[in-house]
């Protein structure tokens, strides 16, 4: 190819090539960043509607103890009293929404955040909680404890 003769054509072709190259870079960036941004977008977690959930085996559940289980996306505290009764309450403290726990030494349900206390029927007895814990239904089916919402 003769350099001198093709100077103007060369010029425009070069610009055109550069233009295409830039276009390609933009397209490339798009094809990288589109999935990247989509990836970083927090995926929507669909809330599962839970109506009942198993809280494990009764025989494995010691008397005078409590445990927290997951009920959908909410915690539920399941308590086995010293006499063997199984009860379940929402584990969300009615004060500011901390998760409550069973205190064997106090014999109460206790919230660590502000020392709120509930008795084993879920009733608020001391500290800041304004109202009792929500009650869940605990059914014993065979050896399995089934927790469901009160209807």
């Amino acid at each position: 190819m003769d350099n001198v003769q093709n100077q103007p054509v060369q010029k425009s072709r070069r610009d055109f090539l550069k233009y295409l190259l830039n276009l390609g870079i933009v397209g490339f960036a798009a094809s990288i960043f589109y999935p990247l941004i989509a990836y970083l977008k927090p995926p929507k977690q669909n809330e599962v509607v839970v109506t009942s959930v198993s809280a494990g085996k009764l025989s494995a559940f010691e008397k005078d103890s409590g445990k927290i289980i997951r009920f959908g996306s909410k915690p539920v505290i399941v308590i086995r009293t010293a006499s063997g009764d199984v009860r379940a309450f929402s584990a969300i403290c009615t004060h500011l929404g901390c998760t409550v726990q069973f205190r064997k030494d106090l014999g109460t349900i206790w919230c660590a955040c502000h020392n709120g206390k509930y008795d084993l029927n879920g009733k608020n007895i001391s500290g800041p909680p304004p109202r009792p814990l929500d009650v869940y239904k605990a059914i014993i089916k065979g050896d399995e404890i089934i927790i469901s919402k009160m209807t």
Partner: peptide, 13 residues
């Protein structure tokens, strides 16, 4: 599993 099924392009990454 979450990355593979829930996150957009998670499978790709």
């Amino acid at each position: 599993q979450f990355i593979m099924s829930k996150v957009q392009f998670g499978w790709l990454v």
